[in-house]
Design a protein around this nucleic acid. Sequence first.
DNA 1: ATTTGTGCAAATCGTTTGCATCTGA
DNA 2: TCAGATGCAAACGATTTGCACAAAT
Lengths: 150, 150
Amino acid sequence: MAAQQSHSKKIVLSAEQEERLSQRLRSAQLRLTRQRVLLAHLLFRDGNRHVTADGLYEEARMVGLSISQATIYNTLNQFLEAGLLREVIVDSHRSYFDTNLGDHHHFYVEETGQLIDVPHDAIQLTQIPSAPSGFDVAGVDVVLRLSVAK
Amino acid sequence: MAAQQSHSKKIVLSAEQEERLSQRLRSAQLRLTRQRVLLAHLLFRDGNRHVTADGLYEEARMVGLSISQATIYNTLNQFLEAGLLREVIVDSHRSYFDTNLGDHHHFYVEETGQLIDVPHDAIQLTQIPSAPSGFDVAGVDVVLRLSVAK
DNA sequence: ATTTGTGCAAATCGTTTGCATCTGA
DNA sequence: TCAGATGCAAACGATTTGCACAAAT
């Protein structure tokens, strides 16, 4: 299931890009290592995106970063803890990570693993039950499952 | 993570119970084997419930059924395919199965793995976006994530 | 110099599969 | 009888971990 292509386009970051990322990682108490900076670049470069550990791994090697799967997992989890990423739960076998930290929901295409953001206000939840006593509602996730139209 | 207790209460089904279950399995084209009948009994005995493969396994052995994990998984998947169960996706590492086939939503307590049904009409979804072209919305899942109040 | 991160391989967890053996219809 | 079900163990895929080495502060 690994998108194995050989576009070994090396990535070079501009000074500003490098700087912006550095801020971000530093303020998350994370050391600036080659792999973290490049993964952060891949993740935060252009707008919001969704990744899978395996997907990010393939992408990283494709741009010429020498990195191990363990580091991918460790890094994603660190970013998660640091609040740089959010997890999206739509599949019971794979973890998805989302760079969009705002309040929003998702479309999910099971067949392809494709995730699409749904803006928060595109869904009107006019009534939700209160939490059972002893609990608080910590979050409301809405997943619109898509299937290919026939 | 295995709730290991030794309440080896053997289960004996009444004639009517046996009969009701038999109908159900037969109409799903499933043979009446000892393990299937007993698992079905555990699942459908009292109202709607949620199980995890491991949870059901522990429960089955606790009531004295000799069964393997493989059979638990196979059976759950068969029941799923046969439409006797539904899957609930709330955790990216574990699969949950729900005997409630109706339209409804869930509360989920991550710390304990507890799942609680939320009636369909307890949540008012007054507006949902239409599917991107080429797709249909096959389902809408709402998960209210609970945390222990402090 | 010290602390923290990295790569690798081995370990783990949930789940699936192959195959020889049973068992229900 | 014999297709289909079961148990076991091995295989699997995703993820985590232990440890020696390397790099960042």
